[in-house]
Structure formats: C-alpha cells, structure tokens
Design a protein around this nucleic acid. Structure first.
Lengths: 109, 109
DNA sequence: CTCAGCTATTCAGTGTTGCTAGATACCGGT
DNA sequence: ACCGGTATCTAGCAACACTGAATAGCTGAG
C-alpha cells in the first residue's frame, strides 16, 4: 500500500498491537507476521520492535524472555492492567474519530 | 483531548479537510472553527493552515483570494478533480483500517 | 564444515505530520 | 489610539513509521 496508510497508522498501530496483546501474549516476529497476513502488507519489521519497546517503557506491557527452538530467544509481551486501561481509552478515541468521519462521509456524498 | 488523538489525526486530518471541501469551498479560519465545533477541541490554528498549503502544493485544491468585510482577504479552497480522486483513495484506505480494527475490537472482547 | 535460509531482535538516520507560540495584517467600536 | 475579532503565516519541536543494515541462534543442504 501507499503513503496514505503509513500516515494513518501513526497512532493507530499502537492501538492495534495493544488490541492483539489483549487477546493473547505474543512476540514481535509473530505480531509482524500476523499483521502482514491481515493485509498490512508493508509494515516494516523494525516498526513493530520499536513500538514494542516504546509501550514497554511506558509500562503498558510485561515482558518475558522465552527460549525458542528455532532461533534466538523471544521477547513475549503481555498486556498488564495499565495497558488495558490505555487500550480502553484508545477505543474511545477511535470511536470518536470514526463517528466524525462517518458523518463526513455521508454528508459529503 | 490528549496525545492519542493528536497521533491518530496524522494522516486522517488531511482526509477530514478534503472531505469538508468536497461538500463546499471553505477557508482556513472557517474550517478550524467548524472542527472545533465538531469536538476537535484542540486542533491548533496553525495546523490547518499548514495542511492547506500542503494540499495546495500537491495540486489537490484550487485557491481563490476573496476580500472579506471583517479582516484580511480569505483564501478560499475548493477541491479539484485530482483532489476528489485522492479523497476516494483516502476513503478506501480508511475503510480498510476500520474493518481491521472492528475485527480486532470484537475478537478481543 | 560451511553456507544459505529462516527465526528473532536491535539500531541509526530519514520524512511526514500535528502542535507551540508568536508575528503579521485588516477592520470596527470605544 | 487601542483592543478584540477576523484571517493568515512561520520557525522550531516532538512523535511516529519507514529504510536499511547489523547481529544472533538454529537447521538442513552441499
């Protein structure tokens, strides 16, 4: 996809990853692969890792190092209480945005 | 509102403004006031002007200087053919994003 | 044994975007 | 003359996703 999606992902990608982690724990490589599967064809490898470090430093996730049979150890992330709170706020903000845009879409055509 | 909305607006604010202009021509001050009215309480004055200049330079809008009775002349922007095309692509990208997020929201709870 | 290929993470540098904060300018009323 | 409302512009800043490369562990082919 193009530049449009890249810019739109700013702010939402974080929510997307948190939402994924709210269902189950996961590690970077896994998340990236899943996103590509879902059609986010051009999400860069590095982007997810940087994002994970960011949300870790903000205390939204807990981390556990787990050895892998197929390569270097995995850093498995799981959403903690603060993360869940933040995710809820994310959904509220997202709802606000979608409502406004839905109105615009209908009004404009 | 907070930082969340600020980051989420990146990429979408442009689409929002284009969507507004698809309904009627408008100038910066007017657009800012309208957005504040719609609940985007903290969209900065300068942000809209910078955005308008950007989309003008990309050739998505036409501009006309119109004298005002109440102050300096207005720069009235209107969406052109290229802008409409770009707006449609924006809606497609937006739909893609909302679908993925809707899935995540349902799956996660 | 070595090398390619998959798994898995990290990092420096870049571009785009919205915000902050202030300047500039035109006009009417006090 | 001054202030407030209208209207636009600008420089500097912070956050975020992308690029491109490096590092590291494991397995199977040659």
């Amino acid at each position: 996809m193009g530049k449009q999606v890249t810019e739109m992902l700013k702010g939402t990608l974080e929510g997307i990853v948190l939402a994924i982690l709210s269902g189950r724990s996961a590690y970077g490589y896994e998340i990236t692969a899943w996103l590509r599967d879902q059609g986010f064809s051009d999400i860069a490898e590095g982007t997810i890792y940087a994002l994970l470090i960011r949300i870790e430093q903000r205390g939204l996730v807990d981390v556990e190092k787990v050895p892998s049979e197929k390569g270097p150890p995995r850093k498995v992330y799981s959403l903690n209480a603060q993360g869940r709170e933040y995710l809820e706020e994310f959904w509220r903000t997202w709802s606000f945005l979608t409502e406004r845009l839905e109105q615009l879409r209908e009004g404009g055509k």
